[in-house]
Amino acid sequence: MELVDKIIKGERAAIAKAITLVESSKDTDQQISRELISELIKKPGKSIRVGFSGPPGVGKSTFIESFGSYLVSQNYKLGILAIDPSSQITGGSILGDKTRMVEISKNPNTFIRSTPSRGTLGGISMGTREASIILDAAGYDFIFIETVGVGQSEIVASNLVDIFTLIVGPGSGDELQGIKKGITEYADIFIVNKNDGELKMEASKTAADYKSALSYYKKLDALEKQVLLVSAIEQTGMEDVIKTINQIIDQNKLKGIFDERRADQLEYWIEEEVKNIIASDITKRLTSKGNIPKYSEKVMKNEMSMYEAVETITKDTLKQ
């Protein structure tokens, strides 16, 4: 494929077109993108994928601008996939991430793509995983994935990356009660942002709260969860972040966790994909057979119970 060569050469327009293909809802585009991805995974790059998640407005984009500037100044190549939460249910989206990433977006060693989330689960859009495969093949050292953290989304987002980072704001310590085992398993690093000006005290306190809360959930062989204090606006704490990322990556590689994780993620995505295909297949069958209105009418007329109806429909639908 010509596109593959261009991507591997790092041609900006080709990378962009390829991402459009993997995000496209058109059948023919999806066909091409499947072929494309099968080709690209044969030529893997060496990227480290880092996820940045957190509540709206906590400073994810600002942090990426700051941290990204630091990385490109160290000559790293940086790909950024920003999943923009601002989409409306109807209507299109206003994608404003770039107004918060002014400096790095100018840099020739970055590639920044915003994607409207369209309300999909966890704000991960269709194609984010594939887009990171494309950037990997194109030779980016780091791939950042920015997602809004709400509810279930961390689980999805964390399955896309080698290191998952949760960015929180000063004062968010109160929400710690809500932090269940789940999130501590998925997140490797907790970054308390806005450690500046009047917010400094509060930020330190929040970091301390996180540290003590996390100490309960120590996992056996994994590295201790890290809590870092930064100010995206004042660009402080950036060295700590890269140091911690590198440390975790090195450790994980050494202990085999790095590959294990990628393997687990693969299982996750295969399962998801299979479920998706089955679900959409079943949905198609359900509608084409017209069982639901038929049996619901029977239930309405008290001819059968709802459970009987469910059982009958299920059997009929799964019948080949």
Binding site: Q88, G92, S93, I94, L95, G96, K98, T99, S114
Partner: peptide, 16 residues
């Protein structure tokens, strides 16, 4: 223009 276009269904990237 950006907000109106988005309301009509365009995806609008807003530059700085």
């Amino acid at each position: 223009v950006a907000t109106s276009f988005a309301d009509m269904g365009f995806d609008v990237d807003m530059g700085p």
